[in-house]
């Protein structure tokens, strides 16, 4: 069989689809924002403006590959590929549908969290290597924000892991056959979603690149394809967080049988992507210290509480059996 987890065809198809979808998300986001903001968005290139992404790609590839003379060249060039790499690596453990995936790992959840932590290096390196004060402020903010929110992100997932008894994402989906984890783990879902937005630093948590405050934050000095990688990396992040939400809390590919499993997965993921875009359109940005206070004083106790209650519940159930 060629269509099985880990086959070259499967890997190739997933890689291709993920990158294309992430690029198309740029168009989707601009059109959706346009719809919600009483304007049109890009609608000139190709049907419905679909080829806008192609035009952008041509532009971004044709741009001069510029490294500022005052930057630290090695880390400056290294930073953008890191974010692309770590997020694409995270996709390897995502179970898209039965038989569709790159690897079937028993430590899937841990792997995703580990990769997400490495993503922070990209942002920090980019900001520090730029040798620009705005970039420095951006990477300082990014480091603080990503490190803090990773803590709650990890803890919020443990409820799901406890209920399933496995770190394997495929097992987690199968464990939801009788009911999605959104119901028992609603608090975990909320915390994971908030932390996920903070991890992919999108508005309202785009503090590391807050345009109105620090111009473009850590990628102020970046242009051309290197900027493009940060940019696509952000959309890959959105895609990843949406897929994870679906896998962990919304039953992954599970759904009524009149549609194939992969379609259910895509539909659910699209819903969250649209939701993230809507959040961006609706909410203002909190201040850096407010975000940190909110995280440490509210989200952390809440996620610990959630974990303790879930653990108690699991123990009680085991004891009862």
């Amino acid at each position: 069989m060629v269509w099985e987890v880990g086959s070259p065809l499967s890997i190739g198809a997933i890689l291709f689809t993920v990158i294309i979808v992430a690029a198309m998300l740029i168009w989707v986001e601009r059109r959706l924002l346009g719809l919600w903001q009483e304007r049109l968005g890009p609608n000139r290139v190709g049907p419905f403006g679909l080829l806008q992404v192609v035009a952008d790609m041509i532009k971004i590839f044709a741009k001069e590959d510029w490294v500022p003379p005052f930057a630290d060249k090695f880390s400056f060039v290294l930073a953008p590929p890191i974010i692309m790499f770590v997020i694409l690596m995270s996709f390897t453990v995502i179970p898209f549908a039965p038989g569709v995936g790159v690897i079937d790992s028993d430590v899937g959840v841990l792997f995703v969290l580990a990769m997400a932590s490495l993503g922070a290096y990209s942002v920090m390196l980019g900001g520090l290597a730029s040798n620009n004060k705005y970039a420095l402020l951006g990477s300082l903010r990014a480091a603080a924000q990503m490190v803090s929110y990773e803590v709650f992100m990890g803890i919020s997932l443990l409820g799901v892991v406890a209920l399933t008894g496995s770190f394997n994402l495929r097992d987690i989906v199968i464990a939801q056959t009788d009911g999605w984890f959104i119901i028992p783990q609603f608090i975990g879902f909320l915390i994971f979603m908030i932390a996920g937005i903070a991890e992919s630093h999108r508005l309202p948590f785009d503090i590391p690149e807050a345009e109105q405050e620090i111009v473009a934050g850590y990628h102020t000095e970046y242009s051309g394809m290197k900027f493009g990688m940060f940019f696509v990396g952000e959309y890959l992040g959105v895609l990843l967080i949406s897929s994870l939400l679906v896998v962990l809390f919304f039953g992954g590919w599970l759904g009524p049988a009149f549609l194939p499993p992969i379609v259910w997965f895509v539909l659910k993921t699209s819903f969250f992507i649209a939701f993230f875009i809507l959040l961006r359109a609706a909410i203002p940005r909190p201040r850096y210290d407010q975000l940190m206070t909110y995280g440490w004083l509210f989200l952390l106790p809440l996620s610990l509480l959630n974990l303790m209650i879930t653990g108690a519940f699991v123990l009680w159930q085991e004891g009862g059996m």
Binding site: L33, W36, Q37, E38, R39, L203, P204, D206, A210, Q212, R280, A281, A282, I283, P284, R285, P286
Partner: peptide
């Protein structure tokens, strides 16, 4: 003003 505190949309409505 809304945009400068990070709210993306109001400025578009108000420009309409």
């Amino acid at each position: 003003f809304a945009q400068d505190v990070g709210q993306l949309s109001p400025v578009f409505y108000m420009f309409v």
